[in-house]
């Protein structure tokens, strides 16, 4: 009896230590975010006094000011449009290409695959300048739709590789049966393949959506003019002009962080699936 008890206690201690490590790591991930949250309702002077203290009063004026000066109402609309269009373009292109590549439908498929692998590793600096001048020549600067094509092209290689993996998982029999029934390529793709890989489509959408939402180097170069600012750019410009008021800056940071965290929690399964699908070979 006593033997059993000590065994149990030992296991408990054995479990507690790893758990402690996990908790510490969680604290490291969360602490800066929590600091932002508690300081977002404080006045600047209170932050200077002690950034670690809990707020004594909760002042939501910071949020109102941050929202106003960061021009977030327009920024969020622009961000949603930009990310949404980018997602649609990427889904369209990558699902078609992924289908062809997974089924080895064309003879040059290894070449195409390698092209996308290489494209993934090209630094933005390599094509930023010429692309900018092409855009300027075509009067596309500040054009959200054109911008979404650029972001789509940047995210396309990973999306193609992911979609290819998802198509590879579809049983061959499904397509063969449809072919025997005399279905056209369009019917096979639209009615049979796409519904089966739709979880993959969502995964790609989420990954591409987050990437384009968070982007700032290309958007700040191509989207000139405040009316075209995304939420990210609004936040960036806020920092330049209003960083005298850390309370306001922290509130703006919460405005940036909260929607993404909420969105992420609600779609986390697809996101994690995608990360894993793209990186773990079965």
């Amino acid at each position: 009896m006593s033997h059993n008890v000590s065994d149990h206690a030992k296991r408990k201690i054995g479990n507690a230590f790893p758990h402690l490590i996990l908790i510490i790591l969680a604290a490291i991930a969360l602490a800066p975010l929590l600091l932002v949250l508690i300081n977002s309702v404080k006045e600047h002077a209170d932050i200077v006094r002690n950034p670690l203290a809990l707020p004594t009063t909760i002042d939501l004026a910071n949020y109102a000011d941050a929202w106003h000066y960061g021009k977030f109402s327009r920024g969020f609309i622009n961000s949603i449009m930009l990310s949404g269009m980018t997602i649609l373009i990427v889904l369209f292109c990558s699902s078609l290409a992924g289908y062809v590549l997974a089924g080895k439908k064309v003879r040059i498929w290894p070449l195409v695959l390698i092209y996308f692998l290489v494209a993934m590793t090209i630094p933005i600096q390599l094509f930023l300048f010429p692309l900018y001048f092409i855009f300027a020549r075509l009067h596309l600067l500040g054009n959200l739709i054109a911008m979404s094509f650029v972001l789509a092209a940047i995210n396309l290689p990973l999306a193609v590789l992911l979609m290819r993996t998802f198509f590879l998982q579809v049983p061959k029999e499904l397509e063969e049966a449809a072919q025997i029934d005399g279905a056209t390529t369009r019917q096979i793709l639209w009615n049979i393949m796409l519904p089966v890989v739709s979880p993959g489509l969502i995964t790609v959408a989420v990954i591409v959506g987050l990437a384009s939402w968070n982007e700032f180097l290309l958007t700040s170069t191509f989207l000139q003019g405040e009316k075209n600012f995304t939420a990210t750019l609004g936040f960036l410009s806020l920092n330049g002009t209003y960083n005298v008021d850390q309370g306001l800056m922290m509130a703006a940071a919460v405005i940036m962080i909260a929607p993404i965290i909420i969105f992420f929690i609600s779609i986390q399964r697809y996101f994690i699936d995608g990360l894993v699908g793209g990186s773990v070979k079965g």
Binding site: I77, I80, M81, G84, M85, I87, L88, L91, S198, A205
Partner: peptide, 19 residues
């Protein structure tokens, strides 16, 4: 998934029209 994609499409179209 299909719901998700459809909603996304609708949302983007509506926003584009607004903007």
């Amino acid at each position: 998934s299909l719901w998700f994609v459809t909603l996304l499409l609708l949302g983007v179209t509506a926003l584009s029209a607004c903007a």
